[in-house]
Nucleic acid binder design. Sequence first.
DNA 1: GCGGACTGCTTACCT
DNA 2: ACAGGTAAGCAGTCCGCG
Length: 894
Amino acid sequence: MAQKHLEDFSLAQSEPKKEMKAEALPLTKAATREKDKKRVFPPLAPENLPPSYFVSATYDGQKCKALIKLYEPVSGKIYFWYDNTGHKPYCLTNLSQYELEKLTRLTQHQGFDHFEIVEKFDPLVNRIVSITKIVARDPLAIGGRPRGCIRDIIPEDFPNVSDVQIAQEEIKVWESKIKYYQCYIYDRNLLPGMIYGVKNGDLVPKDLKEIEEMVKQIKGIFKGATAEELQHIEQWARLLEYPAPKFRRVAMDIEVCTPIATRVPDPREATYEVVCVSLYDSDGQKRVLLLKRQNTREGNENLPADVIIEKFDTEENLIRAVFDVLWSYPFVITFNGDDFDLRYLAHRAENLGFRRNEIPIEVGKRVCLLKYGVHIDLYKFFFNRSIQIYAFNNRYRDVRLDDVGTALINMEKIRLEKGIGELTYTELAKYCFRDSEITFKLTNFEHELVMKLILVLARISSMPMDDVSRQGVSRWIRNFMHREHRKRNMLIPNAEDIIAKKGKTVTKAIIKGKKYKGAIVVEPVPGVHFNVAVMDFPSLYPSIMKVWNLGYESILCLHPECRNNLVPDIPHWVCTRKRALESLLIGSLRDLRVQWYKPKSKDKTLPAEFVSWYNITQGALKVILNASYGVFGADSFDLYCPPVAEATAAIGRHSITQILNKAEQIEIQVLYGDTDSLFLKNPSRKQIEELTHWTEKELKMSLDVDKVYRYAVFSSRKKNYLGVLEDGSVDVKGLTGKKRHIPIFIKKAFDRMKERLARVKTPEDFEKAKKDISEIVQGCYMRLKRREWDSLSDLAFNVVLGEEPERYTKTTPQHVKAARILKENRVDVRAGDLISFVKVIREPHVKPVELATKNEIDVDKYIAHLHSTFDQVLDALGLDFDEIIGLTKLERFM
DNA sequence: GCGGACTGCTTACCT
DNA sequence: ACAGGTAAGCAGTCCGCG
């Protein structure tokens, strides 16, 4: 495979060979061929293209057509396919053609094409309406320019509703903010991420016969599903079962030499020289391109033997060599390339006098895309909170290459002692090479997990891979909702219309400033409890949406006969006549995850590559399902509908309360519970079965035993406990000892306690363990008192600065005080930075670690923190901090 | 002028 | 630009205190 896609250069034509003054090679065969290759742009798909993956889409402003980027995995190339159906951009309005023709600004608009009358189902008024489609020649004519767009002209030129004759009380424009290529994807029923061929110039989906058997098997396990549900399960399964290709790709990193070592150069100015670029590709080719400079020594660092070092006499030639790469790889991976590497290269090339069409980069406001392939900026991807938490279980905490690399693939960046400009060639090469190596490997571990995850998300959301890797979960959900609206010929409602009709919530949140009441947390029973079963509803909220038919259309529907189908405890009702889209789509995704992908991802009898695919798929579904309730309560979501979220939460409270009562009734002690879980003390198998059956029958939802703790420790605090599993692993939830801001000095002591607790098997073991724990605490206390710590940084609190330091006006928290001190010392501090500070005796009682000295540490403050951290566990064990550290009751009183 | 009771702000966590 | 609920620590305010 690696060889194969380098063999085919049939596209190479025209354009004079570029001058390259590289030396100090030798080049491998592959690299030589790559250099010889000549570029043809655009890379048009031939009349008949072998099966290729739909990886991206855009609008070509010159050809005025939708453009699909197809990745052909055998040659490892991208092919462009332009629309040949004459599809055009449009928006919709409730004004008639007659009225619209009065608007000369519209009919004379250079982008205007024609009107059509269409019928669509309007979900908010629950009937088919006749509306006018305004077709344009260019998507920017509909919207997207600051002034004079069609969607703005209509309300501007009809300022008064009385000017026109319409049935509704308002002039409306719909679907004018959908990106044109998304519109194209929906209307043509295309599936990004799936496989297509080109036959006689037409784009045709490849038939998926190799997965038919599997799809049949999947449908077979959903016995209770309705025909409609089954149809959707099948639709999702087709998308998710089809295998992924190998992704031919290159990771890239650049270094720029700046006069001031601490400043990051501005990519919009691109004032300074690009001195090094490293490239690491999926065929194992590793290159470092260096710029020859005066006063730079060679150095004697060793790089891996297979790294090819190329030196360039001029920066221009170096950048040309990099651009050759960007013109030829289907996928280019960077870490922060949107805001730095690609942006810098593009502006630098401009400054150096490159012609526009020589630059392979499309520079946008916030992104940098490639004219040829697909640029994945891993920083954007890993920054996504949903990805961070649900796909990677919070394994990395700061979104920096070093941190993500260490956490996911155990690779660190190379630490620099000096600025880029002072490095020798080999030092610079080694440093830069490591970055592209980490970047590449972040897309390569676990059978190319990251690439496949992006592919799966692209399929679910009907989005290009470049968009899906940059945008948040609410966009993914919105886009598959849009797709399904179009598929059903439903009008996509405007957010303000949903709000006007269904915007009210009726419950009062516990937290001030929130819109509605959320979940229930059961008061824990403090103490140590042996044999604790944790039961939970798998995907509670998506289940509720499915079972209760929740969606913006069904909540508070217009049918009088549905008004008595009430949500428990609140006055909202739900439609009984028509299935809501969200309920159907999210419900079927949930069932597919719970009943197929989750079990398959744990099936040890399958080959590793399959398990990995199932695991990736279930992970992608998890990310989407976890957010599927929340988006309805987020005003940034296009189908924002607070009563849907409110009803979901209300039914959740109702469900857990019902089980609580049932458990009590069959005499199981409930120790704790949170939202969708119950912690049961020593239940019998029979009791568990009874609860499960009852839930299945009465609530129409599944209830599983998630795990069994050998023992669990609760304090009186909610969302705070420690549980030891049978295999000796320890779950710590919410305890201060695991929070990332506390000093490692305290954290280490806490971890020692954790290790000790893991070894406790029986209630009898506890006595010995308590003694050991007391000693751990005692030792820690003494070391503090004697000021015996390894380094000051062990005492640092690390707190994220949520805002720019000046923006704190109401209060000045300690980390902000420290940040301001740093600023006074000319250290650049910005929102999002992690501030490390220690507590000191003198005002203002905090100091950035790097400025503090041992003697000024306020030891008593640290003892107080040690105290409160351990108290969360100690009181459950019947231990007392003060007694442990040897204070008598009298001393404490004094 | 100072401490206690209180509220509010901020961060990090849980589901 | 998914939600609400909880814990902890500190900042700031008010009030009483001969």
